[in-house]
Simulated scan of single mutants.
Amino acid sequence: MKILITGANGQLGSELSDVFKDRTGYELFFLDRKQLPLEQTNLIQDILGMYQPDLIIHSAAYTAVDRAESEPILADQVNHLASEEIAQYCRLHDVKLIAISTDYVFDGNSANPLNEDAAVAPINTYGETKLQGELAIQKWAPHYIIIRTSWVYSTYGANFVKTMIRLMGERDEISVIADQIGSPTYAHDLAQAILSILESDKWENGIYNYSNEGQISWYDFAIAIRDIKGLHCKINAISTEQYPTPARRPKYSLLDKSKIKTTFSVDVPNWKDSLQKMMYKL
């Protein structure tokens, strides 16, 4: 099977490279932003045609959530219009598509874990562009799986875990938001889940949720990072209102993973177990 993976140098793209390393039966093409410039939407189908994949894993995205508020056109080109071009290519050539989306398609007003049928209502530009990408994929791609995930981190790239380790090493005291609730996702676990889907010999179109098990706040996450690392920085819990950002964040975006577990027998580790594994690797 020929698989093309976008976002080669991103957190998930890098983890997918690791996960596929020892697998046989796959011919893999990892494309970075230079090889596949998603903002140049007129080039996308021609570039994909050079590789003629059987399946595309679309993990590339514009993920600078705050910057998207001042760059809405670029965010839309990358997250929405590029996804539409990829989906149209899949329709023209009967290619399967696995695309990564986000918990930011929700408004954060729920009090219960969100399943795939929960109402979407993004409260920032990033979430809106990702939702439009989802809708374009559902419209055009004949064989699609959209995986919504949240709070992604990895040994690769920049992320919350690495930022916290750096700040706690530099400062005696930091403040972290305690009233945004969800669950982190170790990108290596998500890569394993994608592999499980491919090797399940089952394909069911639709949207699926994937994050690690458990319910925490960013503050809880920071405390765990500090304790695993054995640091002594004081961490203060603050509210969202005390840390204003250009883009609003959903207050609650915990994902219900029942569907992906039932459909594809995907393993979903607890967030703390995965965090320990990642930090040990780091």
Rank of each mutant, 00 (worst) to 15 (best):
D76C: 12
Q11H: 07
W203D: 05
K34L: 13
S258P: 12
T102R: 05
T24P: 06
H58G: 08
K139I: 05
C90W: 02
K281F: 15
E213D: 14
L198M: 14
I3K: 04
D273L: 11
E199T: 14
L198Y: 11
K162Q: 10
L4A: 06
D76W: 11
G10P: 06
A64P: 01
I146N: 02
K34Q: 14
T102F: 03
Q77G: 00
Q192W: 11
S211E: 14
D256V: 12
I165V: 12
I228H: 07
H93K: 02
L74F: 01
Q180P: 09
K234Q: 15
A187W: 05
T155K: 14
S150H: 07
E134M: 02
D32H: 05
N42Q: 11
D179I: 07
Y186Q: 04
L81A: 05
Y144L: 04
T129H: 06
A247E: 09
F221Q: 10
L114F: 04
D189N: 14
D117G: 09
S59C: 10
Q40D: 14
G133R: 01
S274M: 13
L231H: 10
K34A: 14
G108Q: 00
Y126V: 12
A224E: 14
S175H: 04
P244F: 11
P244S: 10
N124W: 04
D54G: 07
P142W: 02
T155I: 15
E84F: 06
V176R: 01
Y144T: 02
P246T: 13
K21T: 12
M50K: 12
R33W: 15
I223G: 08
K202Q: 14
A99R: 07
V105A: 00
L255E: 10
H93N: 09
E173D: 13
Q88K: 14
D54N: 08
L114P: 02
E199S: 08
E128W: 08
I146W: 00
A119C: 08
I98N: 03
N159I: 07
G13V: 06
K34F: 15
G214F: 14
E15K: 08
E71L: 10
E27I: 13
S83L: 01
M168N: 03
F160D: 01
A68S: 13
G133D: 04
A68T: 03
C233W: 05
M168R: 03
G25I: 05
P250V: 05
L31M: 10
D189K: 06
E241S: 15
R166H: 13
A68E: 01
T163F: 12
S101T: 06
P53T: 06
E116C: 05
Q242H: 10
I225S: 07
I228E: 06
L282G: 13
